[in-house]
Write a protein that binds this DNA or RNA. Structure first.
Length: 683
DNA sequence: AATGCCTGCCC
DNA sequence: ATTCTGC
DNA sequence: GCAGAATGGGCAGGCATT
């Protein structure tokens, strides 16, 4: 039976003995299920009703299916929205508001200031505006001329003393150099823990000596070290904090908070995303947007470009000693002038290590002490255990306190799609947490306490089984019923609802995970995008196309950026570099929004796997076949291998793509939908 | 007012 | 989402 | 085994530009 890949088989078949301790011993694989499993559909049918009143709208329901865990998410979402709108109406209770106005004035002033300049330097990113005297002095805030070369600052020092070992004195503004040196040290270290330690030492000094600069420091760290695409700053507005539980954290981002440091004191929010940041750097350094842009492309790190740009400028007029604050303020001002900076978002984008560094710094050198502080190193004289506990607590606070964004609330009348919530589990009932009870209990309680309502509120379809065959059948059935797959869980043993252990005890089963199952296509590489972060120097993604024999066109079908080993990537880059052409061929069909950095002569054919095919607003594959204006694209595309044996013309054709699309159960089941399209066609 | 870019979110 | 890679 | 860091399609909402 080839149903499961080895990987799956391992997790699937390892019946976990009911153990009470936390070790995860597994007894070797048995060849059949030894215990009853409850299996729920991954996404259940949602009956679409295009009229009628609804009180819930799940975003995941837009495509007519709802993820297995949607019920809960839906609730959370709705709740959050409500809260968000509440705070909309009464944001005044939040201190941040004040600052917003004070900064607001500042902004207004600059806006006026710049709007005239703006006329002479068109904001269009493509152009390189002639800069007249945009040599803004990045340091106009700091006083004095060049000091003697600064002291060596070494936050890497053993038993670091936040006061003695700092290169500045209490009350001083933090010199930018200190931060630069800190970052330099960090970059030369590979161990994460070490990085955290170094950075936290710097933070400790800032906390003790110049707490006002903490925020600026954090921002500048981000700017420097975060991957470019995440390099945006938002000084939060805590009015957007919500008090309800959790928000799913994006995998790579943490959202911190406003305590215990008074981060919200700064009040305003300033959303700088990449493009804005590029303009910012251009303006602040007197370089053209195009220049900066190309530099970013080269280095892949906007922070480095900023640094270098600033460096150049410094050569030109030898400014005074930079302070962290001055740099930050300037950036802030300019970004704000940039126009689109003030956004409604309210999040900090952080990386874990900064959070941890911050937590470590807080734990070691508690903030908000009078100077000189009584506690410089809280780790001293305390059992390591105790300190660790305190640190963990702090880290937890930092990690779990976060800001959510305002969401535009849709009025109920705007909601067009009837949504049905499918319950599949119960974590909490009448004041009692059920998280530690086995699934069988939770499910029983769920069934006892909730009354399903047809087409609104139902139980997720599930089966209990011990045999592989039934699992297989149920998987087939679920796919036919427009679901993505199954969730498989144990009913009794280790059947608690624990997120952390989820990956071990819950198994997600989707068709395209299985080897030899799922959609696979052979596509032509039309172009590529320069890699960023760890992919600097190679291509990071590619534009793929299918071949339309009728029009003899290559039609874009998706971009692709995963599935390659580092080695693959290097090789592809090497091979494709030889085939770069200056302009796309006239017979390449693609959307301008996906314009690659480099175009290639169509030659390479890659085998690519995906989960689904979808109608796309931007891709052009098989355009005109199933829809007039929309092409077809791939969902979750990943690279499998190069098809050396195929030439570009032998790639998957538009016709085949259309066929694959139409053959999807999901599409077939839509039934009526196609009639509608035909009617439209008719007119 | 319409269009298009940018961002953040959801998979 | 998916995938690969260090730790 | 896990966390981190690369990357995907598609959508909604907000701004900017036309």
């Amino acid at each position: 039976m080839k149903l499961l890949t080895t990987q799956h088989r391992r997790s699937f078949f390892c019946a976990k003995p009911a153990i009470t301790n936390t070790s995860h011993t597994t007894n070797g694989g048995t060849s059949s299920l030894t215990e009853d499993r409850s299996i729920t559909r991954l996404g259940c049918n949602i009956v679409k009703v295009f009229h009628g009143d609804v009180s819930l709208c799940s975003p995941s329901a837009r495509d007519g299916s709802c993820g297995e865990d949607s019920p809960i998410k839906t609730c959370v979402l709705t709740k959050r929205r409500r809260i968000a709108s509440d705070s909309d109406e009464e944001p005044d209770k939040v201190p941040a508001k004040n600052c917003e106005t004070s900064v607001g004035k500042k902004l207004a002033k600059f806006k006026a200031d710049v709007s005239e300049r703006a006329s002479s330097s068109p904001p269009a990113p493509r152009q390189s505006p002639k800069k007249e005297a945009v040599t803004e002095d990045t340091t106009d805030k700091s006083q004095g001329k060049v000091k003697q070369s600064c002291l060596e600052y070494n936050p890497d020092k053993g038993s670091y003393d936040p006061i003695q070992d700092a290169s500045w004195r209490h009350g001083d503004k933090v010199p930018y150099l200190a931060l630069a040196q800190t970052l330099e040290k960090i970059e030369n270290v590979s161990a994460r823990l070490k990085m955290i330690e170094i950075l936290s030492n710097y933070f400790r000094s800032v906390i003790v000596l110049s707490p006002d600069d903490l925020l600026a420091s954090i921002y500048l760290c981000l700017n420097k070290l975060a991957p470019a695409y995440e390099a945006y700053v938002v000084l939060t507005d805590s009015s957007q904090r919500t008090s309800d539980g959790f928000k799913k954290l994006p995998d790579q981002i943490m959202y911190p908070y406003a305590e215990p440091y008074d981060l919200q004191k700064t009040g305003i929010e300033l959303g700088i995303a990449e493009t804005t940041l590029i303009r910012t750097i251009a303006q602040s350094t007197g370089r053209s947007v195009a220049q900066v842009k190309s530099d970013v492309a080269d280095t892949g790190d906007i922070g480095i470009v900023a640094e270098q740009s600033r460096g150049n400028q410094r050569m030109m007029f030898q400014p005074a000693r930079l302070t962290v604050r001055a740099v930050f303020d300037k950036l802030l001002e300019i970004a704000t002038l940039g126009g689109k900076a003030v956004s409604t978002t309210g999040t900090y984008s952080f990386y874990l290590r900064w959070l941890l560094a911050l937590a470590l710094a807080c734990a070691t050198t508690p903030p908000e002490q009078s100077y000189p502080p009584s506690v410089l190193n809280a780790a001293k004289g305390v059992p390591a255990e105790t300190f660790k506990t305190r640190l963990d607590e702090l880290a937890l606070i930092i990690k779990t306190t976060y800001c959510t964004r305002k969401r535009k609330d849709a009025t109920e009348s705007d909601i067009k799609v009837q949504v049905c919530v499918y319950m599949f589990d119960l974590m909490y009932l009448n004041g009692e947490s059920l998280v530690r009870r086995p699934l069988s209990d939770r499910r029983r309680l769920l069934r006892e306490h909730f009354v399903p309502v047809e087409e609104e509120f139902q139980l997720a379809i599930s089966i209990d089984t011990t045999t592989m065959e039934e699992v297989q059948d149920f998987l087939e059935e679920s796919v036919k019923g427009n679901c993505e797959g199954l969730m498989v869980k144990t009913l009794e043993a280790d059947a608690t609802y624990e997120i952390a252990k989820r990956s071990r005890n819950w198994l997600k089963l989707k068709k395209d995970y299985l080897e030899g199952v799922g959609d696979t296509l052979d596509l032509v590489v039309l172009g590529a995008y320069l890699g960023r972060g760890k992919r600097v120097g190679t291509y990071g993604g590619f534009l793929l196309a299918c071949y339309d024999q009728d029009s003899e066109e290559y039609q874009s079908i998706c971009k692709i950026g995963t599935g390659f080993t580092d080695d693959d990537l290097a090789k592809h880059t090497q091979v494709l570099k030889e085939r770069v052409i200056p302009k796309p061929r006239p017979y390449y069909r693609y959307d301008l929004s996906h314009e690659p950095d480099h175009w290639f002569d169509a030659s390479q054919v890659w085998e690519v796997k995906c989960a689904d095919l979808s109608l796309s607003p931007v891709h052009r594959a098989a355009i005109g076949i199933v829809d007039h204006e929309k092409g077809i694209s791939l969902r979750f595309p990943r690279f499998l291998r190069v098809r050396e044996d195929k030439s570009a013309e032998e790639a998957t054709t538009a016709t085949q793509v259309a066929e694959m699309y139409t053959n999807q159960d999901q599409v077939k089941n839509q039934g009526l939908g196609s009639t509608k399209v035909m009617e439209e066609d008719f007119y």
